[in-house]
């Protein structure tokens, strides 16, 4: 993960550190930082930060996803996906805004969903 991402990361709640492996269905409502290994599925209603040391083999859902590590699986973000130069994504990305730094690897399709304006519940 780039230094810039780490600065943004000050509000992080759940931290999946480099010394742990998580397997199963992980669901959170706060920010999530991944530095270790995740297998299964990973979902948060807030922001997801994937550090350079992270390895994720899971379907990923988040509000915004800032990816600097390896993700094998589809990434669905409500708003933004940002791939830094160390990111490796092997799967499809669905989001409203996509930003890819030079050096990032993306093997998959991208689908840009439209912003729903004036949406009524």
């Amino acid at each position: 993960m780039s230094k810039k991402n780490e600065e943004v990361n000050s509000e992080a709640e759940t931290i999946i550190g480099a010394g742990v492996e998580v397997e199963g269905t992980f669901v959170s409502s706060g920010n999530v930082t991944v530095k270790g290994r995740v297998l299964g599925s990973l979902e948060t209603k807030n922001d997801l930060y994937v550090a350079e040391t992270a390895s994720i083999e899971a379907e990923v859902k988040a509000k915004n996803a800032f990816i600097g590590g390896e993700v094998k699986g589809d990434v669905v973000a409500e708003e933004k996906v940002k791939l830094s130069n160390s990111a490796k994504v092997f799967g499809d990305i669905t989001c409203q805004t996509l930003s890819i730094e030079e050096g990032a690897i993306l093997n998959g399709k991208c689908q840009m969903s439209k912003r729903e304006e004036g949406k009524e519940e």
Binding site: G17, G19, V20, E21, V22, G24, F26, V27, G40
Partner: peptide, 10 residues
């Protein structure tokens, strides 16, 4: 009952 955590060198 949703996910497991395994530790490594901690």
């Amino acid at each position: 009952h949703q996910y497991l955590i395994r530790t490594n060198k901690l």
